[in-house]
Write a protein that binds this DNA or RNA. Structure first.
Lengths: 337, 337
DNA sequence: GTGAAAGCGCTAACAT
DNA sequence: ATGTTAGCGCTTTCAC
């Protein structure tokens, strides 16, 4: 590590000006050939790296973007991150990860990082803005792309999947197998993503003329243990379901775990459909039937949109909708008689 | 977003100097009371945030650290990250995530981020240095803490678990259940972590006087599908094992998945022990017997060590060894006759 | 306790 | 094609 050479050191050693060195190193095409090569060579030899603070201060850009999620601990976000990262790197940007844990203060902190020059733009996947009066106004024209979740009426560009449609497809699959008593464990309401998936469930049920009994729509929080608990409650009902559509895979794992403890066979006694297609879902036993999202693609699309905005492009009015796939595996079977 | 007020704006509005504003905002205790409060108030009112590039340039510190892993996609790292992050935040540092994908160029890039001022220190969890001649010398005195994996002879402080001891305990558990034909699916050799776990396996086998037949030590790469494939190969052997100690949970999931496909019961026909205790391991079916590491604690310990170094403390000579626990769950049972 | 002034390392406008 | 100069926004001596 030791000495950190600066542009001036290189310049002095070659008897040229600092400006020339800067130009040579930035491929500006403004430096002539005998000098150019010598500068590059010396820079490499001295192991020179430009100081980012100085450069960012001067250029007023950080060449970094912020990707903000609720919970870095959720493996779901990782493949999205990979998509974001690959696209960002290709454009010379680095990616900072932000983790809010649903804490409003931390949400604000990440928005602050935009204002203090830590990052030039943000991909927001928390599904909400900090609950502060007038907050939206203060960030309305910032370079922000909302992905995965939705923030209505904020005017930000969106990259999403059709949660409602995907949920409807999943429930229709269950209905097609002859199930009539189908329950839904949702995510936190009234968050839009949770509501959309629940709406898809309701739409499919209604279209098939099936009733949704009291207690068939317990509200969860996407966590494993909650799936377990809500499943138990479902089976304390006078008329328990024969199929459950769960709003995400993690809760679905909890549900299946609990069903097993209750001595019920999956899918013999109860069918289960999840949502997300985590990398473990296929190796789970039984392999989980679930809705698969193009995660890396979501990341790439969001980052591309953000790059457009940073380059001065306009913000797209219409959300980008990416397609989902229902992966039919081992946790769904015809309804028991 | 709009206007980004600077210190000068605040100063002018109050008729004080920029220096005073800077001092007031940094809690230096050098500004007297009538002024102090007014500055703070105006700063809040103007929604002021100091520009990080300018500050970092001036102070020559980024107040950020880099946590570099092989694969952000591995949920294993997430809880470590949480530990690192919590400790870092408390000390006023932010955490940048680095993802190498085992690519030497990317590894170098992250070291460069130390030199270009992006970060002040690094927590390295890749288990190796970039394979460049003289590389070690160039970073030998950088503020780097190695966690999880080990880099021998580099002189960096380490935060680790006793991989060999934990592996030996795991295998002894199997031996205690009466198993004699025990195979081990390892991680990539010759990486130290993989080798350590394999050594633990060998030590336990030898101590029990058990032979390790040819083909009983297939080498994997910690990935799900590899576990599947190597398991299949194991059962094409003339004398297949009755128990398998797998170097991580992800491969163990693959192994169990494959055993099921082969029509073998876990743990009735074959016992399996993993290593990591992922958050899904307990909900898996059968619940996985595995070695649990104190992940968040590893993150906290590593970050604390790094903070010490950044504060000018000495680098500890002896690695910090954190304790592991063998979680005995549902994938291990007495050996079949 | 506060202000004036210098300077962190870099890039960009202007000059030649 | 290269050099000179100024300045990004902040913190920190050094004065008073």
């Amino acid at each position: 590590m030791n000495e950190r050479p600066k542009i001036k050191d290189i310049a002095e050693r070659l008897g040229v000006s600092a400006a020339t060195v800067s130009r040579a190193l930035s491929d500006s095409g403004l430096v002539a050939e005998p000098t150019l090569s010598r500068i590059r060579e010396v820079a490499r030899e001295m192991n020179y790296r430009p100081n980012v603070s100085a450069r960012n201060l001067r250029t007023q850009r950080a060449m970094a973007v912020l990707m903000v999620v609720r919970d870095v601990g959720n493996p779901f976000y990782l493949e999205i991150l990979k998509g974001v990262e690959a696209t960002a790197r290709a454009a010379g940007y680095s990616v900072l990860m932000g983790n809010t844990e649903n804490d409003s203060d931390r949400e604000v902190e990440y928005f602050d990082m935009l204002r203090d020059g830590h990052a030039d733009g943000m991909i927001l996947m928390t599904g909400k803005l900090p609950a502060r009066e007038g907050f939206l106004d203060s960030v309305a024209d910032a370079p922000i792309v909302v992905a995965l979740e939705e923030i209505r009426d904020a005017g930000f560009p969106h990259v999403m999947i059709d949660n409602e449609g995907a949920a409807r497809d999943a429930v229709e699959h269950l209905i097609g197998l002859g199930h009539k008593r189908i329950a839904h464990i949702s995510g936190p309401v009234p968050e839009i993503m949770s509501v959309s998936r629940r709406n898809g469930y309701r739409a499919a049920m209604q279209a098939a003329g099936l009733a949704i009994p009291d207690g068939y729509e317990p509200v969860g929080d996407y966590l494993l243990h909650t799936g377990q608990r809500l499943c138990r409650e479902l089976f304390e009902l006078p008329q328990p379901p024969t199929a459950i559509f769960v709003a995400n895979d993690e809760m679905a794992f909890g549900v299946i775990h609990e069903l097993r403890r209750l001595g019920l066979d999956v899918p013999g006694d109860v069918s289960v459909v999840g949502f997300d297609d985590l990398f473990l879902s296929e190796a789970f036993y039984p392999p989980l039937t679930t809705v698969s999202q193009p995660r890396a693609e979501i990341g790439r699309a969001a980052m591309n949109m953000l790059l457009d905005m940073l380059a001065g492009g306009l913000t797209p009015r219409k959300p980008a909708m990416l397609p989902t796939t229902l992966k039919i595996r081992g946790t769904t079977a015809p309804a028991p008689k």
